[in-house]
Each structure stands twice: as structure tokens, then as C-alpha cells.
């Protein structure tokens, strides 16, 4: 049984790239490397616009990309629940392969364990990734006057998954934004060298959480302008129904970027040249008024805080 699974995995993920020895031996070239790992669980395993496999590849690619690294190699460790449908596993693996090919990374090593029925939820995937740093890490000195950018509409992934999970019969236009961000980051690096001070993919906790991480214990604040950030109509609709806030909803193909205010337009322009940045825009600015806080300016000109929320977003009725 296990041999069969191992064979299937190798055949799909990369007979040409997976090294069968105890470890993969790589030659990324001279310079620093970036190294990261992440584990993935999602219910349901398949959702509009993606599945756990695509998520596992793009998630790790993105963690490398937002540091300014060029992702090259991934590992893939699977924990499978006994009884997982082989057809589903095949689909997930094929999706991983497609995602890896699109991102331009190779899966070079992996591992599989099967656990008893009930000991896992279908399938868990861990991927680790290695990328090379051609430039310095994108972690500059943020200061008042800087601009906050995003590469497109927010909340798409979390809402697509939540709608599926809550058996709400939503139909049109609701897709996860699950996508790799390395092409976009590379375009920005080559068109606007040295301009990005910070970038992070806005996954769990959404855009609001990333902004809080940026300003926490610092002498500056981030102010968002409600009218300026892009939210798809469908996402607004589902969020209204379930009582959740798009700014706190997970994304899987969106990043928040901070740069010098004077170079913001240039970066937006570069992002828009890529598939993952078609709707890139400026959503706010770094200021000095409420140090350590994230502030939202509402459409009518009122202000409110956007704090860090540890709580999981549950559908609510009140």
C-alpha cells in the first residue's frame, strides 16, 4: 500500500526532480539562501479556486518571495488519514505539480505517513522551501510618510472556503485567490530596485493582522482608507451575510507592501504588469498620530481602530 502511494507521489510530483536518497543534494549557487516551512490543513480539501495541494505549494513559495528570495526547491511531507480516496489524493498531487510548475519551483524531497482513521482530517501537507537571495532581504526602516500597498482584492480565499464550509449555496464569482507571488515580487525587484521596505503575504488574520505586525511597538501607525481598498462585491455580500470583516479574512495570493511614499505609484505600476497584481493599489499610509495602532478611516470620514484579533471568525447572526 505504502509503496503504491510513494510511487504515485513520485510519478506526479516530479520523477525528474525528486531525489530518492536520504536527503536531496542541491546546488543553489553562491550567496545567501532563504529557508522556510509551513504546514497546511483546510476543510474542505477542495474549494472554489483551489485545494490543499495548491495551497501548500503557493504558501511556501510566498513566504520565500515576500522576503525577496527567489524560490527554487520545495519538500513535500504528507500525513494521510487511512481511507483517503486515492482519486482525491491524485487530484491534490496533480494540483501541487501544476502549482510548482507555474511558480517555477521543483519538489526535490518528501515523506509520507499514513495514520489511522480519525487521527487526521483527510490529508495534512507540510512543505519546506529554499530560495536564493539575490538582493538584501526586504526589511527596511519604515517611517511616517511611507505608503501601504496591496496587489488586489482582499478576503477572496477565506470567503470562498467559508461559503463552502457553511453550505451556503453561493454560486457565481467566488474564487480563492490562491496564487504564487514570486513572479510579482521579481518584477517589482527588477523594475523598482531598493524601493520595497517590507512585504508580507496576508494569510491567516488577513490584511488587518499584517498591518498590526508592522506597527506593533513602533513609533508609527498605519492608516487605511476604507474607500480605497478593493473588495469584490461577492466577498462583501458573503461577509455581510455571515457577519465577518473582509480585512480579517485570510488571503492566499495577496501581500501587503510598505514603501517610500514617493515610489508607491512606480511599484503599483510594476505589480500591475503581472497576473497576480492586476488590481494593485495604494490602500493607506504610515503616520505618526497613533503609534503602534492601525486606524481605518471610514467612508464618511470617521475613524476606528483595527486591532489584532486572535479569535477565529465564526458566522454570526448578531
Amino acid at each position: 500500500m505504502n509503496d503504491m502511494i510513494e510511487g504515485l507521489i513520485r510519478k506526479i510530483l516530479g520523477p525528474e526532480s525528486i531525489q530518492l536518497d536520504d536527503s536531496a543534494v542541491l546546488d543553489p549557487g553562491p550567496g545567501k539562501i532563504a529557508f522556510t516551512t509551513d504546514s497546511f490543513t483546510v476543510t474542505p480539501l477542495f474549494f472554489p479556486g483551489g485545494d490543499i495541494g495548491k495551497l501548500a505549494v503557493n504558501g511556501t513559495v510566498n513566504d520565500l518571495a515576500v522576503m525577496g528570495a527567489i524560490p527554487l526547491y520545495l519538500s513535500c511531507a504528507l500525513i494521510l488519514e487511512e481511507g483517503l480516496d486515492m482519486g482525491e489524493l491524485t487530484k491534490i498531487l496533480e494540483s501541487m505539480r501544476r502549482a510548482a510548475d507555474y511558480a517555477g519551483v521543483k519538489i526535490v524531497t518528501g515523506d509520507t505517513k499514513v495514520v489511522g482513521k480519525g487521527a487526521a482530517d483527510g490529508i495534512y501537507i507540510n512543505t519546506a522551501g529554499i530560495g536564493i537571495m539575490e538582493n538584501e532581504a526586504l526589511r527596511g526602516e519604515i517611517a511616517p510618510g511611507d505608503a501601504v500597498l496591496i496587489n488586489g482584492s482582499i478576503g477572496d480565499h477565506g470567503v470562498a472556503v467559508m461559503a463552502e464550509r457553511n453550505r451556503l449555496s453561493f454560486t457565481r464569482g467566488l474564487l480563492s485567490d490562491c496564487a504564487p507571488l514570486n513572479h510579482l515580487m521579481e518584477r517589482v525587484a527588477s523594475n523598482c530596485p531598493g524601493a520595497v521596505k517590507f512585504a508580507r503575504d496576508a494569510t491567516r488574520g488577513g490584511v488587518a493582522s499584517v498591518l498590526n505586525e508592522i506597527v506593533k511597538n513602533r513609533h508609527f501607525s498605519a492608516t487605511l482608507n476604507e474607500a480605497s481598498f478593493p473588495v469584490k462585491d461577492e466577498v462583501k455580500g458573503v461577509c455581510g451575510l455571515l457577519g465577518i470583516e473582509p480585512l480579517y479574512v485570510a488571503n492566499e495570493g495577496k501581500l501587503v507592501m510598505v514603501c517610500d511614499g514617493g515610489r508607491a505609484e512606480e511599484i503599483v505600476h510594476a505589480m500591475r504588469e503581472t497576473e497576480e497584481g492586476r488590481e494593485a493599489c495604494i490602500i493607506g499610509s504610515i503616520g505618526a498620530e497613533y503609534p503602534g495602532k492601525v486606524v481605518l478611516e471610514t467612508e464618511i470620514g470617521g475613524r476606528r481602530m483595527l486591532p489584532l484579533l486572535a479569535e477565529e471568525q465564526l458566522p454570526r447572526i448578531c
Binding site: 478611516e297 471610514t298 464618511i300 470617521g302 475613524r303 476606528r304 448578531c318
Partner: peptide, 30 residues
């Protein structure tokens, strides 16, 4: 309770004149 939240969320409470105080009533069933 939804008013409590929405007054904040929309920023309308931020527009209140200084001497207007908004008191929350027993309107959150939970």
C-alpha cells in the same frame, strides 16, 4: 448590539459631538 458595533465600525461614533454620550443597552442576546 448590532447598533453598538455598527456605530463604531462605520466611524459614526467618532463623529459624535463631545457632549453626546452613547450608552449601550441590553441588546446583545448572548
Amino acid at each position: 448590539g448590532t447598533h453598538t458595533t455598527e456605530f463604531f465600525r462605520t466611524g459614526v461614533k467618532d463623529l459624535f459631538p463631545d457632549r453626546l454620550r452613547l450608552v449601550d443597552g441590553p441588546g446583545c442576546p448572548v
